[in-house]
Design a binder for these strands. Structure first.
Lengths: 189, 189
DNA sequence: ATATTAACTATGAAAATCATAGCGTCAATT
DNA sequence: AATTGACGCTATGATTTTCATAGTTAATAT
């Protein structure tokens, strides 16, 4: 007996059954009851676990276990969200090992394109959810000019709008340490 | 008997009990177990209803009923999320009428500052969740130069990074119609 | 008196999530 | 040969959250 693990509002569209720039959009069905792009996005990614998983993917994690460790999601949450992300075309699942069969998860173009949302969440969190003594969790350096862009979306030094691919991420020691200790705690369990 | 309506992971910080740029940040308690700004943001706004409510506030809605109509949230969801948004300093509740006592909800600076997240969700939705025949749900026109910025965060005409306050929103007829018919359906109920 | 407006509250049923444990396949170690 | 460890998951019952539907309250308008 299969237990449905996905919340019903978090839509899940089979590949190639929809139109849109990259074929992953609801057609005229009842779920598509709004033209609001925010509501449509939220229908695909509007929950905590999905957002944290996307963050991990941008952090470079590709494996189930690492995502489980860093997001603290239960395996069910992870499975259901990854399935939805795959069905919705943000993520691709691919075997990296044949025996035993093991999979990794990779961002698609559509998934990479979602990055500005995470970047904006980061900027807001860095500005409004911080103790005075804390530095940035991750520094982004504009490769073209070598300057730290802070939390801006336009390089404060050369004025160009920056995309993730133009930036070098430098993870703070505190954040690195935190991530490492989660790994250790998981192994000790 | 009070029934807790907020999911336990959606944090709720009493005013002035925390530090941060505008006093709304967890201190050293157990919930603040990460320096990741994305995780911290998600702890305050990482759910569907909160995002839709924020969207409505940016659309200009200030009233409980209008938000209920446009988000399709039940009154409980709305109440709990608005309380959290207020406690977390993104929204202010203010009486607009004394007898009977009626409240409206207004964005604070912290709430306005969240706009880039919604804008990024919009851009992604407009690019990836759209049928070919659909135009933009909302056009944003750069007041300074009179040009439509499309989905960009930098005006394609004058090259300036744009903020919400620099933009004139022009809601499409389709979106307007949809919103009006939700209102009618609600009244008929 | 009755209806209407608008911001909510109440309650039981349904759904989603959590906590904890376990499975299956393989390779390496004892 | 048996055990241990990796690692991507699945199973299950208890708990928490949400949904659907209805109702309350205070005041004005009819």
């Amino acid at each position: 007996m299969i237990r449905e693990a996905l919340p019903s509002w978090l839509h899940y569209y089979e590949k190639d059954s929809y139109h849109g720039e990259n074929s992953a959009m609801p057609m005229q069905d009842e779920t598509n009851d709004t033209v609001c792009p925010v509501a449509r996005s939220v229908d695909l990614v509007g929950d905590k676990w999905t957002i944290l998983i996307m963050r991990e993917l941008y952090m470079g994690a590709t494996r189930f276990e690492e995502m489980q460790i860093q997001t603290a999601a239960t395996p069910q949450m992870l499975t259901s969200r990854l399935k939805a992300l795959e069905a919705n075309g943000l993520v691709e699942r691919r075997p990296y090992n044949e025996k035993p069969l093991r999979y990794e998860y990779l961002l698609t173009d559509k998934g990479w394109d979602f990055y500005p949302v995470i970047y904006a969440l980061r900027a807001w969190g860095e500005k409004w959810c911080k103790n005075p003594d804390e530095g940035l969790a991750v520094h982004f350096v504009h490769r073209a000019c070598g300057h730290d862009v802070g939390v801006a979306s336009v390089c404060p030094h050369c004025g160009d709008p920056v995309e993730r691919k133009d930036l070098e991420a430098v993870i703070s020691n505190r954040f690195l340490g935190e991530r490492e200790s989660r790994r250790e705690a998981f192994k000790r369990k």
